[in-house]
């Protein structure tokens, strides 16, 4: 079967109210409506969630792990941005 018109979609599911949508996988579909139906058929067979998002994979703009250092340095050299950096008296240390 030709998949010439099929586009790749990424599927995100909200497990229950109050949680963020989480990426669960991807699938091919003609359009977003069909992608939603496929996602329902494939990814929610055992009550996995209450809401599905489908997004064209080509619309996802992603950073690369190899760019980590220059792109989003975790700033480990700035430990004062963490609560544990501050030594407080024992009595009030649960602040």
């Amino acid at each position: 079967m030709s998949q010439s018109n099929m586009k790749l979609y990424e599927v995100f599911i909200r497990g229950r109210r109050g949680l963020d949508h989480k990426h669960v996988g991807s699938l091919h579909a003609e359009d977003s409506e069909q992608a939603l139906e496929y996602a329902r058929d494939v990814y929610t067979r055992r009550g996995e969630g209450i809401s599905i998002w489908v997004v064209n994979s080509s619309d996802i703009c992603a950073s690369q792990e190899s760019d980590c250092e220059s792109f989003y340095d975790p700033l480990d050299d700035k430990p004062y941005r963490h609560a544990t950096h501050y030594q407080l008296p024992e009595k009030v240390n649960n602040m």
């Binding site: 004062y80 941005r81 963490h82 609560a83 950096h85 501050y86 407080l88 602040m95």
Partner: peptide, 10 residues
């Protein structure tokens, strides 16, 4: 936020 309060107290 916890860092914010602790740095102030410090």
């Amino acid at each position: 936020e916890s860092f914010h309060q602790r740095q102030g107290y410090h």
